[in-house]
């Protein structure tokens, strides 16, 4: 418990440092940091509709964050969530417009296909990782580009809505994820995301499988010695992570856009990964960090109209957070002055 608190205090310091540097940058462009932050807050939580908007942005970040958490806990760095999200989004759209089904069932089938698409997409890097030890970071990053371009190709050349933009035909109303309120596109996706976070947290904490996977993540040689099939677990972890990434895409399609289009949901996969890292791979923590990033995104819409700061300042702050979280991790390693000693001394 104490250790957990300490681990998080590092993350909080990282965020504070990032915000402080962000403030300095804002001052450099002759704008008032308080004004910018107040505008952000107003943009994110100013009224009912804004809060709903923030939660709408939070949903895909949260689900992608959970996908990343699954990978991180199992020792796999899935940087391909963005790509899995695109494929899941496209797959769900395809079921949505091309496969008429009764209401309810249509949603379930479309989501399932999205999940399968995400898992299938990551299964290629997962196979190479398990079979040949190919670093999954590189292969999943590369798979993003292929995914984005592949879905663009499918959209523009095979399934383009006649006369429309670079987008597929709209999905049938039977495949819509129900909305929660009349005044916002906020939908059941948020509930699914929250439930998933709770489930994954419980899974790692309380099941034998979750224990085995965590051990593979934190001490792979120990896990191997203890009789856990490390390669198999690694493969399954990547698959599960990709499946959740696909789910995130499916929810975006069925809940928000009701079609697939080029440039669909940009950057949610990466934001989710950062949210998960900032939460130390904890799904519950990711709820908080995803909300933070969702609020930044939504709040930033107001920035350009109400202040001189560009919306890109949000990207800068995120980059600063990544840097200071990495620095924290490095410093923590250094701070444990006995780490090297323990490595040598039995």
């Amino acid at each position: 418990m104490n250790d957990k608190l300490r681990a998080f205090s590092g993350q909080i310091v990282a965020v504070v440092i990032a915000l402080a540097i962000g403030a300095v940058i804002i001052m450099l462009i002759d704008e008032s940091p308080t004004k910018v932050f107040m505008t952000l807050m107003r943009g994110a939580f100013g009224d009912q509709a804004k809060i709903a908007g923030t939660l709408l942005q939070t949903t895909p970040i949260l689900i992608c964050g959970i996908a990343a958490c699954i990978g991180l806990r199992g020792g796999m760095f899935n940087v391909g969530i963005e790509g899995q999200l695109f494929l899941g989004g496209f797959a769900a759209a395809w079921v949505g417009f091309a496969m008429p089904l009764p209401p309810g069932l249509h949603v379930v089938v479309a989501m399932t296909v999205a999940v399968i698409a995400g898992a299938a997409w990551v299964s290629i890097p997962a196979f190479f990782r398990t079979r040949y030890g190919t670093n999954e970071v590189v292969s999943t990053i590369l798979s993003n580009y292929v995914a984005v371009l592949l879905t663009s190709y499918l959209t523009i050349f095979l399934f383009k809505r006649p006369g429309g933009w670079s987008e597929t035909p709209p999905i049938l109303a039977t495949a819509y994820l129900p909305e929660l309120f009349a005044f916002s596109r906020l939908n059941w996706g948020l509930i699914i995301g929250l439930a998933l976070a709770l489930f994954v947290a419980w899974f790692f904490r309380s099941t034998a499988k979750g224990y085995s996977i965590s051990m593979v993540g934190s001490a792979p040689k120990f896990a191997e010695y203890g009789g856990i099939d490390v390669k198999r677990q690694g493969f399954m972890v990547l698959l599960a992570s990709g499946a959740v990434g696909g789910l995130a895409g499916g929810i975006e399609t069925l809940g928000v856009h009701h079609r697939f289009m080029e440039g669909f949901a940009p950057g949610f996969g990466f934001d989710g990964l950062i949210a998960a890292l900032l939460a130390n791979g904890s799904p519950i923590g990711t709820i908080v960090t995803a909300l933070f990033f969702g609020a930044l995104r939504n709040g930033s819409l107001l920035l350009e109209t109400d202040t001189n700061a560009s919306r890109e300042i949000i990207t800068v702050i995120q980059a600063l957070i990544i840097l200071s979280v990495s620095a924290q991790v490095l410093m923590k390693r250094r701070g444990d002055s006995t780490a090297g000693e323990r490595r040598w001394k039995f």
Partner: peptide, 22 residues
């Protein structure tokens, strides 16, 4: 090589004793 194979240093004693019995 007990620190590499024998334990997960970052986990608790209970959790380490659970290995193989989960």
């Amino acid at each position: 090589d007990r620190l590499v194979r024998g334990v997960d240093g970052s986990a608790s004693i209970s959790s380490n004793l659970l290995m193989g019995r989960q």
